[in-house]
């Protein structure tokens, strides 16, 4: 089932000197319900721009988004995970995760319950009362993911969520994300510049290229085995890595 379709989306930025830069040339993309779609490409290919257009943070210069049940009207329709956790430092981890629910008018008791449930899901069940500064980078990013999932948005957009983490933590977070996705069943659009990450996590990978930004190809990533550590030694995985790498050149 198609959740949202981007049709001929373009984006032109005006520079300070008055010149125009085309960040995104007409781009069309269909996003299926429940899929994990990665946008991958070099910097300047417009992957973040496309993600931000999907989120409503920026308006496209042309084209349109067609949503299955109409464009998002409430904040609870879209979840967004930034490269940094963007937690509110004055709130405890639990209150941070409850923050969207508070804003949407969910009662405090129910909000606490749902926040704690979500924190358990991301492995932070014991850290609800901690302050953001007391957690490691990986844990903070998990809390940020919990905050984006807690209100069950129609779509979760992630902008290089693990880009600022070290490699080991990043690997672990990828496994966590696979597990969380399976439990929650959310539709996820994931921006990354890591080929491994894209091939490991995605149902589909859209390879983008720069000047002007556009989608070059879209691959259905299918494996005969289940996703997990073992997949990384699987020839199919390495096949996708080499395909994607060649396309990015």
């Amino acid at each position: 089932m198609e959740l949202v379709r981007a049709e001929g989306i373009t984006k032109t930025f005006t520079t300070r000197s008055g010149g125009e830069v085309q960040a995104l040339s007409p781009t069309s993309l269909s996003i299926q319900e429940g899929e994990f779609l990665s946008l991958i490409g070099p910097s300047g290919c417009g992957k973040s721009t496309l993600l931000r257009i999907l989120s409503g943070l920026i308006e496209p210069s042309g084209g349109e988004l067609i949503w299955k049940d109409g464009a998002p009207t409430s904040g609870s329709d879209v979840g967004f995970v930034f490269q940094e956790p963007v937690l509110l430092p004055w709130l405890s981890i639990r209150d941070n995760v409850r923050f969207p629910l508070d804003a949407f008018g969910v009662s405090k008791a129910e909000g606490n319950e749902r926040a704690m449930e979500m924190l358990k899901l991301v492995g932070l069940g014991d850290f609800g009362s901690a302050l953001p500064k007391e957690l490691s980078g990986g844990m903070r990013q998990r809390a940020a993911i919990a905050r984006a999932l807690v209100y069950r948005p129609r779509i979760v957009l992630m902008d290089e969520p693990f880009g600022a983490l070290d490699l080991l933590t990043r690997d672990r977070m990828n496994d966590e994300l696979l597990r969380i996705k399976q439990e929650v069943g959310a539709t996820i659009v994931f921006v990354t510049h890591s080929i491994e990450e894209a091939a490991y996590l995605s149902d589909r990978v859209a390879v983008m290229c720069a000047r002007p930004g556009r989608i070059r190809t879209i691959h259905d990533i299918k494996y005969d085995v289940e996703r997990g550590e073992a997949l990384k030694d699987n020839p199919q995985f390495h096949h996708w890595l080499s395909v994607l790498r060649k396309e990015l050149k």
């Binding site: 979840g79 967004f80 804003a103």
Partner: peptide, 24 residues
């Protein structure tokens, strides 16, 4: 990014002010 977050969540101006901007 906190302002972006408030826009993602479609906070009202009042909510953004009291929950994000003033504490910050």
């Amino acid at each position: 990014n906190m302002i972006s977050l408030s826009r993602i969540l479609k906070l009202t101006t009042y909510q953004r002010l009291t929950r994000i901007e003033l504490p910050s």
